[in-house]
Amino acid sequence: MFTGIIETLGTITNIAKEQANIHLTVKSNFTNELKVDQSVAHNGVCLTVVNIENDEYTVTAIKETLDKTNTGNLKVSDSVNLERGMKLGDRLDGHIVQGHVDQIATCTNIKKEDGSAVFTFSYDATNKNITIEKGSITVNGVSLTVINSKQNEFSVAIIPYTIENTTFKYIELGDHVNLEFDVIGKYVSRLTNS
């Protein structure tokens, strides 16, 4: 479990393909605190640490992950949002995030405002995922509040701190992002659509 509060940015230093899988090597300032078998969220995708060397660690993304996320689009030197699993007893500053991406969305608009920026994303509504006004959404692992909720589109207003300390500073029109919809909302939606 995660909170959607990004701890740091990591840098992809190597990508190795093995059959349908890819192994991502990431340089991070918390690598020395990791252990093999720990879970780390990478742009919201929960991946298991399989190797650690110096200040770099490696995780493996299987075909299922590559099919449902933007992980396969990563390149060497790309930055990724990183968050380690939540500790029991800590404050939950974001919202409950599983690290299980539901689908990909496309950035359709970026509007700079006085002191913030509004990012708009569209997604395929046939998957029956929904957003609600002032509800929670995770975009590339970042816990955010939904504004302008529509059937297949929503916006989020981002403060300068979040832009500067996450990969939001690199998002451009047409970029694909990982979405994890609110877990409680997913269960309610499933119950009401049954």
Results as ranks from 00 to 15, higher is better:
Thr3Asp: 08
Asn14Phe: 09
Gln151Lys: 10
Asn32Ala: 10
Glu172Ile: 07
Ile62Cys: 05
Glu164Met: 12
Lys128Phe: 13
Ser143Lys: 02
Arg84Gln: 09
Asn193Pro: 08
Glu83Ser: 01
Ser155Gly: 07
Ser136His: 13
Gly4Val: 03
Gly72Ser: 13
Val26Thr: 05
Ser79Cys: 14
Asp124His: 00
Thr13Ser: 11
Thr138Arg: 00
Asn178Val: 01
Asn148Leu: 07
Tyr187Leu: 10
Ile104Val: 13
Ile159Asp: 09
Val183Gln: 11
Pro160Ala: 09
Phe168Gly: 13
Gly44Met: 02
Gly115Ile: 01
Val59His: 03
Lys186Cys: 06
Ser136Asp: 10
Glu83Leu: 03
Val101Tyr: 00
Val156Pro: 06
Val76Thr: 14
Ile158Val: 12
Ile22His: 07
Ile104Gln: 11
Tyr187Ala: 08
Lys35Val: 13
Phe168Trp: 12
Asn43His: 06
Thr58Asp: 09
Ala41Asn: 05
Ile184Thr: 15
Ile62Arg: 06
Glu153Lys: 07
Asn178Leu: 05
Glu113Gln: 15
Asn109Phe: 06
Thr11His: 02
Arg190Glu: 14
Cys107Met: 12
Asp37Thr: 10
Ser116Cys: 09
Leu82Met: 06
Phe2Ile: 00
Thr13Gln: 12
Thr167His: 12
Val45Ser: 06
Asp102Trp: 00
Asn73Gln: 13
Ile62Val: 14
Thr138His: 04
Met1Phe: 14
His42Ser: 11
Leu24Ala: 06
Ser194Lys: 14
Ile132Thr: 13
Ser28Val: 03
Asn178Pro: 09
Ser194His: 15
Phe168Leu: 10
Pro160Gln: 08
Ile22Asn: 10
Ile6Asp: 07
Val49Lys: 01
Asp114Tyr: 10
Lys128Ala: 08
Asn54Gln: 15
Asn14Trp: 04
His95Val: 01
Leu88Lys: 10
Asn129Leu: 11
Thr3Arg: 05
Ile110Glu: 06
Glu172Val: 15
Val97Asn: 03
Glu113Cys: 12
Asn148Lys: 11
